[in-house]
Simulated scan of single mutants.
Amino acid sequence: MDKRLIWLALGSFTIATEGFVISSLLPDIAADAAISVPLAGTLITAFALAYALGTPILATLTGEWDRRRVILWTLVFFVLGNLAAALSSSFELLLIARIVMALSSGLFAATAQGTAVALVDDHHRARAIAVVVGGTTVAVAVGAPLGALVATVAGWRGTFFAIAGLGALAGAILWYRLPRGIVGTKLPLRQRLAATLRPGVPSILLTTLLALTGAFTVFAFVAPLAIEGGGLSPIALPGMLLAFGVGAVIGNIAGGQAADRFGA
């Protein structure tokens, strides 16, 4: 296996950790900003919308750019977004910082997977993508609980500082390790979106939307549900996120094996 894939996975781990750990920070953010927890939850909604809508547009605009250059710039903006979140003086600034992080995260994810494919031969493409995406899975099981643990010690701002540091480390390693000259293919936005209309795809997307809506509606508000609703201590939040992450890993592995054995 090309060891450069591990560093791409580290980038995925860093970005996904920020995306998942925010749920444990909502009560503290709401308290500091003097707003309600549901309003603080718009930090998650804005991130998700910016990620979903911005990624195909940015991927189209940067399709012919050097992929090393794109990856490094996405990490630069991701780090700056985390620093801005940590230093934000208002909820509005924090919201803008999360949108910046979402746009950079989405473009990183798309570009990292394309770069992984370009680094290996045709027979190992699926495995290369699995390694990079594996960083996200590890973030769910390990990164988010660790980020929540940092918040119990250093506050929610400390978590953003820690993620910014990890993002800078990933960027420095990838700057050193990734080769120049890997150029992607520029696909029109219409062609990218056309894939969603292929036979069978809309129903799969709808099923995925409904399933993840149910899961992440609960996950997004796991902190107030656990603390206010369940009477647990804030120190229990890392354990709650760990339980969710372990379940996600088990489900991911079991789902893949079941699909191979019984069919999708």
Rank of each mutant, 00 (worst) to 15 (best):
M1C: 04
K3W: 13
I6R: 04
W7H: 09
L10V: 14
I15T: 07
A16C: 15
V21A: 07
I22P: 14
S24T: 12
S24P: 06
L26T: 11
A30E: 12
A33P: 12
S36P: 05
L39G: 03
T42S: 11
L43P: 11
F47N: 14
A50T: 08
A50V: 05
L53V: 04
G54F: 00
G54W: 04
T55M: 07
L58T: 14
L61D: 02
G63F: 01
R67E: 01
I71S: 00
T74C: 13
T74Y: 07
F77V: 15
V79Q: 13
L80Y: 05
A84Y: 08
A85Q: 07
S88C: 08
E92T: 15
R98E: 03
V100P: 13
A102T: 14
S104A: 15
S104C: 11
G106K: 04
A110T: 14
A116E: 10
A128Q: 06
G143Q: 00
A144C: 02
G147Q: 03
A148I: 05
L149H: 04
G155F: 06
W156R: 13
G158R: 11
F160V: 02
F160H: 10
F161V: 15
F161K: 03
A162C: 08
A162R: 01
L166W: 12
L169Q: 13
G171C: 07
G171E: 00
L174M: 13
R177S: 05
R177E: 06
P188R: 10
Q191C: 03
Q191S: 12
G200Y: 02
L205G: 04
L205W: 00
L209K: 06
A211S: 09
T213I: 01
A215K: 02
A215Y: 05
F216Q: 00
F216N: 01
P224E: 09
L225C: 05
L232D: 07
S233G: 06
P234Q: 08
L237V: 07
L242F: 15
A243I: 14
N252D: 08
Q257N: 12
A258S: 07
D260H: 10
